[in-house]
Every structure is written in structure tokens, then in C-alpha cells.
Nucleic acid binder design. Structure first.
Lengths: 201, 201, 201, 201
DNA sequence: AACTAATCGAGACGGTACGTCCCGTCTTAGA
DNA sequence: TCTAAGACGGGACGTACCGTCTCGATTAGTT
């Protein structure tokens, strides 16, 4: 039995975590600050999440995730371009810092790394791959491409700029990415590329 | 006069930092551990570097940097491929963890971010771009490509896999990257791509 | 109407408090443990007592108090000795720890201090003083003794050993206490002692 | 090698602990407060002492202990009386609260209990017993008394009043204690008392 | 027998102190 | 004179327990 968890408090905690981390970055904010901002005891945070990383990860998933729906456009190849533009906009928003923070923290926290990969990255990759399949079905893309690899090709450069900071993340950059990609993958393009994503050296 | 500064100690510090961080990651290692491993007082570290990040950054630059020379091959486009293979090998070695660690730390340390960008990333990007120019000169690449953008396209996916962990970093992956790239940028390929790296939205 | 208050539960709470604190001491026991042991919600405890100290105090008063009746013996001076022996036995039982715990807690809790003094100590002192008066009436004690002071003299050393732990609390110790006392207070003993208990310096 | 401990800081910590605990009691003050008052990091406290209790115990021993020297008087029995008066004065000073606090804490902390007993109580008992022996040698006290027991008889009532609060601790109380004691132990007094302190029941 | 309303178990909550860890600075003893 | 060893101030961490608050299941008296 017992008193059920206060779902509003959870929202308040996640919102506080989201706001603070988006503004100042993961490392700069403390659990006490999150608790204070959410008007909550520290134990209410640690009762639900094992550590700061998990709170912020959940904030991303629950509060930001729903805002990142994929656009629906008749022509699938246009949809790819649109999705790249959305990613640019997302990275340029305050959430860019949030993603950077979590990705950084994940480098020293395997649990977080897995959560970030499996609960944030992979679902969105699936969305991208669904569009790619549709583009193939619509005859806009060669059918022999490796979906995983292709997704890396499209999004890797965006994350690279986000994390390293060489060059700004712009829609022009996304466009160039898209065009470079289409140049190599449009139906009729000659290519020796073969699926590699599951192969090891 | 007193004893002259011990240059051997600096090497020992950098080597200790390199070994420890490569093995366990930046966050898991403390400055005291580095000092102990180098058989050095903590002050000998802080006398020469402002903080832990700077030590590890210097360890990378001084001990690892020289090992990353660019291969010289007659045919420039082959050189690009070779360089991608070396990058794969590098990321798969213990240094992969070092790079991940520093890149992670750089997300919350602007000073380190700049150092990493300007002293590690940019010089290597210049090397890549030199090869690209040579390939253009040799007529193996279209002359209208944006060098910065192209470098992002080639290396972004590698860093993406290094940091996010979706998919393994293999030579097959590097090959696919290379082929996809050549498919879109070989002389005679139609493309609307134009330089974008300095433009803002 | 709803269910009437469960008086059985109160007993269970007090019994749980008594058992746990007697075994492990006040500080080692949490309110949650008492509630769990009594198979009762924490609110059922705080509904009836303001805090942990009050529960344990009441456990002492209601469950232990009735067991500490004064022995009735024709010769009052023998009764004093008997009572000292009972005190020794009491302190050596599990309740010794209970008394120590409460007395300890009372040092930082004035409310508990007063309760312990007024509801436990003072009534028992009254019992002792009644015996002393009877002994005077029976001509076994000098009539000019200060009853409060005398009670302190008889019981102070027992509490001292209980709390400080120099020396064991034995019946031989009680006997020595008694004899030393009688040596100084028997009728016919010369003494300049006068009532002092209410005087200040 | 290493930097030697800063003895001034230790003094500052002990002084802060002494002042704060004497004023507000052990339980009311926190380690952070002590650290703040001493202008010291919390780690400087925990580096030297395992917990708050140990700090306060050491404060008592190092700062108060030296102030509690035994008076030297030609006539030993007078010295006993004088010593009782000093004890009254001590308990009535701010240090009374300190002693109460530590004794209370010792009830749930066996390590502290032992320290308090062996490093505070026992040395002072030895002082008292030395005076008692001298009084015996001077023919002012019967030679067959049990020193341990006698010390309990003299000081037990004082601690009893300190901790329980029935009756004030006054010099008149000390006088009565002394006279009651002398009445039973002066040379020529009849008594069956025998050493008991080491005997068990 | 079904309904209704008080009561209770379970346990979440805000708060406060604890004792630990590591950073980057400072200090001393000894080589 | 320089450096290893390591103490130091500071500040975040994650844990424990207090006393309060809330929910849903249980039960007893009324219909």
C-alpha cells in the first residue's frame, strides 16, 4: 500500500534538472540545486534515481523526447532533409548543451552510456532508418545501402560539430550533408559499398 | 644555486597521466594517483600545469601526437583511405579512451575544449585537408568541394561511433565511409554542393 | 461510524519499543523499526506520541513501572537494603540499558528530562523516602536527616556505576552502600549534617 | 615527509568544539558548525578524529583537563572536602553541560564510553584515591576502606544530580556528602564494610 | 447483505546532518 | 635550493533518520 509516489514532484524534479542543466551544463549544477529548484528533499531525488546522471537522462527522455517527433512528408527523401534541419535546430537550442553534457558524462558512466544509447539514440536512429526504407520503397534511394552505416554518415558529422566545435551547426551544413549523401546514394549511382555495420575487422 | 628543474619528472608525469587515463578514463583517475605513479609531489604537477585536464591534454600532445604522422603515398586518394584506417586503429587502441575522456571533459571546460580543438583536432584536420587538396591537384577529386565540410563528413562518423557506441569502429566502416565519399565527390559527379563551413543561418 | 481506535496496537508499540531499545539502545533503534516490529504504521505512533523519546518513556512507565513495586518488610531498615538489592537486579537486567538510554537522551531533550525525572525518578524517590520516614519512626534512623540528600547518597553511586561503567553493579556493592550509610545515620551517631537539598550557594 | 599537521588548527578545532558544545550541548551542534567556527575544512576534522564524539572528547581532555588540577593542602581530609567543592564548581560551570553531553553520547558509543572512562574519569579517580590514601596515612581515615567504592560514594551523588536534575549541585550538598562520609569512615567508627569493587554477584 | 465512513498499514515526503571524496593550494622536512 | 609528501579549505556527493503527510485496503456499524 503506502502513499503512492507524487508524480507532480517527479515532474518538478525533471523540469528543474532540465532547466538547470540546459542553462549551465551538467557538471556545474548540483543535486542540491535541483532539489532546491524543485522544492523537494534530496532524498526524493535519490529515492527515484540512483544519481544525478539518471535524473538528467530521464529529464531528457520524458520532457524533451516527446518534442522530437519525426516530420511526415509525402516524399521520403524530402523527409530526410527536413529531419536533418530539425536536428540542427535542436542542437542549436538550449538542448544542445544538454545532449553534450549527457554524452560527456556517459564517457565515464557505462550505465548512463547504455541508457543514452538505447533510450535516446537508438529510437531516433530507428526513425531515421524508417524514412530511409520508405525512400528506398519510393525509388528515391538505392536499395542496397546499409541503413546503420547510412545513419552514421548523416548524423555523425552533426554530433562531431556539436561536441568538438569546429564549424557551426547550420541548416546550410545540413543541406550540404544531405546533398553529399544523395549524390552517392541516389538510384543509378555506381558504388561498391556493401553492408558493414555488423562486421568486425 | 639550486638544483635545476627536473625535465625527467615532467615526462614521468605525462607518461603516468597517459597510462592511467588510457586505462581507466579521465574521471576515474585522480591527480594524487598520477603523482604517485610518477613518483612526484603533487606540486610538481601543479607547478607546470593549471589543472588535471591540462596535464592529460599535454600527455596526449607530447606522447601520442608524434605517433600520429600522416602516411605518404603517391596517389592522394589512396592516402585518404589509409589515413581513415589509421584513425580506426587509433580509436580502437587504448588511446580511444583517452580521446573520449578528453572530449568529454572538454564539454564542461571551455579552456580544455579550445586546447583540444586547436592543438589536437585542427592540426590533424589540416593534414587531412592537405591530402584533399593534393587529390584535387591530382584530378582525383572535384575542385569545388568545401574542405572543412568534407573533413567533417569523413571524420564525423568515426567520432560519432567512438563516443556513442552504436556500431563498432572497423576498417570496413572506414572503407564504406571512403567509398560513399568518393561516390559523391569524384570528378565528374554531379552535385549542387557549395562551400558552407563559414556561413551562418 | 468507522473503526474505534485500537488499544491493542498501543500496547504492541510500547512492547516493541521496550524490547528493541532494551536490546540495542535508544540511538540504535529507529521509529521505523518500532513500527515494523509492532506491525503498525508510523502514523499510529506519531498519532499518540510526539516523538520517539516519548514512546520509549511511556514504554518504561507502562510496561516496566508496575514491575518495580517496593517490598514490604516489617523492619524498615531491612526494607532499605532490600530495595537497594532490587535496584541492582533491575540495573543488571536488560532494563539497565533502557534507563541508560533514556537518561542519555534526556541530556539533550529537556521535555524528556522532565518526564523522566517527574514520572520515573521522583515517584521512586518518594517510595524510598517513605521507607526512610518509617525507619525514623521505628527508631532505626536519626530523625534529623535530610530525606532528599539521603536518597541521593543511596542511589547516586548506583547510577554512577550504571552510566560510567567503573566497577560492576553488584549486591555486594549495594550492601557496602547500605552499611556505609547506616554507619553514619544510625541513631546515636554524631553528625553535623543538616538539610541542604533546597539551599543554593 | 609531507607537511606536518597544523597544531594551531587542531587547537582552533578543539576550542570551537569546546565553546559550541559547552554552550548548546553536543547534539545541537554539527561538525560543519565546528569547522566553520574554527575556520577549517570539514576534512581537517575528520582527518584527525573519527567522528564528532572524538573531537569533543579531545577538547575536554586537552583544553579542560589541565584546568582540573588537585588542590594541595596539608591536612588530607580537608583536601577531600576541597576537591568536592571544586567538582561542584566545575559542574556548575559551562563544563557541566559538556560532561553531561559526553556521558550521554557515551551511552550509545562504546568507544567514547571507554575513552571517557579511561582518560577522564579514571585519572581523576586516581587523584581522589591518592588523597584518600594520604588521609589514611595521616590517621584521619580508617585503613580498611575500599578506595574504589569510597570514590563512588563521594562522587556518585554529584554525577547523579548532574544528570538527573533532582536537586541542585551546591557546596552545601558537597559538605553534607563529606560529613556523611566522614561520619562513617573516621577512625574509630564501627563498620562491617569490606572491599567489594572487584567482586561479582 | 450492501453500503458507508472512519481508521490504519504502508511508505513517500521535506529537511538536516553525517562522513567521504577529490580538487587545487600551501607548507615543511630532507636530499 | 628544490622537491616528495601530504595537510589544508572548500564543496559536492550519496546515506540515514526524523517527524509529517497521503493513499488505498480494511473493517464495523448502519441501513
Amino acid at each position: 500500500m503506502g502513499r503512492p509516489r507524487n508524480e507532480e514532484a517527479d515532474k518538478a524534479i525533471l523540469q528543474a534538472a532540465l532547466d538547470l542543466v540546459s542553462a549551465d551544463g551538467y557538471r556545474a549544477i548540483t543535486v542540491d540545486q535541483i532539489a532546491a529548484q524543485a522544492q523537494v528533499g534530496k532524498m526524493s531525488i535519490y529515492r527515484r534515481w540512483p544519481n544525478k546522471a539518471a535524473v538528467v537522462m530521464d529529464a531528457l527522455l520524458e520532457l524533451v523526447g516527446p518534442q522530437t517527433d519525426f516530420p511526415s512528408v509525402p516524399r521520403a527523401s524530402e523527409s530526410i532533409k527536413l529531419q536533418l534541419h530539425l536536428q540542427v535546430k535542436f542542437f542549436r537550442s538550449g538542448y544542445g548543451r544538454l545532449i553534450r553534457s549527457l554524452l560527456a558524462e556517459a564517457q565515464s558512466n557505462e550505465e548512463l552510456a547504455e541508457a543514452f544509447r538505447e533510450r535516446w539514440i537508438v529510437p531516433r536512429r530507428r526513425g531515421v532508418m524508417a524514412i530511409l526504407k520508405k525512400a528506398i520503397a519510393q525509388g528515391q534511394l538505392r536499395p542496397d545501402i546499409d541503413l546503420e552505416l547510412t545513419t552514421d554518415l548523416l548524423y555523425g558529422p552533426l554530433y562531431y560539430r556539436l561536441l568538438i566545435g569546429t564549424g557551426t551547426i547550420t541548416t546550410a551544413f545540413a543541406d550540404a550533408l544531405y546533398e553529399q549523401f544523395m549524390a552517392g546514394h541516389q538510384l543509378g549511382t555506381s558504388s561498391r559499398s556493401r553492408p558493414v555495420s555488423q562486421r568486425e575487422d
